[in-house]
Design a protein around this nucleic acid. Sequence first.
DNA 1: CGCAACATGTAAGCGGTTACATGATTAC
DNA 2: GTAATCATGTAACCGCTTACATGTTGCG
Lengths: 182, 182
Amino acid sequence: MDVKAVCLGMLTDGEASGYDLKKQFESTFGHFFAAGYGSIYPALASLASEGYVDCREVPQEGKPDRKVYRITDAGRTRLLEALEKPDPSHKVRSEFLAMMYFAHLMTREQIDTIISHRKQEFDQYLKMFADFEADGLKDWTPGMRFVCGFGKAVTTAIRAYLEEHGDTMTAKDTDNRKAAAG
Amino acid sequence: MDVKAVCLGMLTDGEASGYDLKKQFESTFGHFFAAGYGSIYPALASLASEGYVDCREVPQEGKPDRKVYRITDAGRTRLLEALEKPDPSHKVRSEFLAMMYFAHLMTREQIDTIISHRKQEFDQYLKMFADFEADGLKDWTPGMRFVCGFGKAVTTAIRAYLEEHGDTMTAKDTDNRKAAAG
DNA sequence: CGCAACATGTAAGCGGTTACATGATTAC
DNA sequence: GTAATCATGTAACCGCTTACATGTTGCG
């Protein structure tokens, strides 16, 4: 399941342009499978060359032609094959946790700054999940609900953990930075 | 904070070989910052060439010489600089959630297989965290406790979510795969 | 007899990120 | 006027993954 496969999946919901897909990668997929134009446009070009999608060019004035992609039968087959993988990955890469691991080498100010930045980011996610629920949960598939609920559950847990334990590294009255440096 | 910086951080705890560091990347860092030999050995070579670590070769019989690295003063300075970053990343990349998003295109069997694999993996993590706590929490720094607690909190939340909602995608009596393919 | 642990590394490749390049329209 | 939105793409780069290459010791 790479960017190409996800594009294919999104296109089962109806035709769309690269620009449209980007918005979905940012919003619904943002917290677990982000992708930028540099991944999406080449992915669509590649899918088109392989016959997994059709491309229809819609002329526009003052803007580049809008390229609208539609999934083909071969594309559907390919997607279903991609969905056969029995043990898909779930990876975290966190500079944040790596740095916190070495909190004893940092100043209290540095730690506080980082923790408060994190809190803000997770609050934004929480807001996003709330918006999803307020909005259009009605015509969502069970899978979409599951993924949204998953994100909300994880983010809620993290947010609570930061609130409860975010100050445990700054509570001490010693600044270990000098000791470590010297 | 890349692999090189993390190696530097690990070396503040005492000298070690690439092989030693790999074990730490697998165990304590495994759930949020994994790295293999293909990253670690080049990282150490690079750090050595830049003067951030010293290398001492310990001859051994029947095995390649053990190369033991020690952080230098320049290395400590470099590490402290790396730790100044005010907003380190925390990224999730999940084929798992991407696939679940398209659960309506999968069979119940496929979904069940994936969910049960996930449960097993998260149970292993939970066991690992429990082992950490049983073992040597005594001489841990606050940062290490924080990171371990973070992992435990997140994993616990996920595990509970899977238990409660893992079957919501298979509850329906329709298999949408055929409809999607046809 | 086979597997895990010990121990080091290289090289190709893959996939994603970032910066670059272009430019009109609309809303504040 | 200036920022955001619409709209497409390329190319260089970066960093990590995977496979390859080699060989001993010790345990069950």
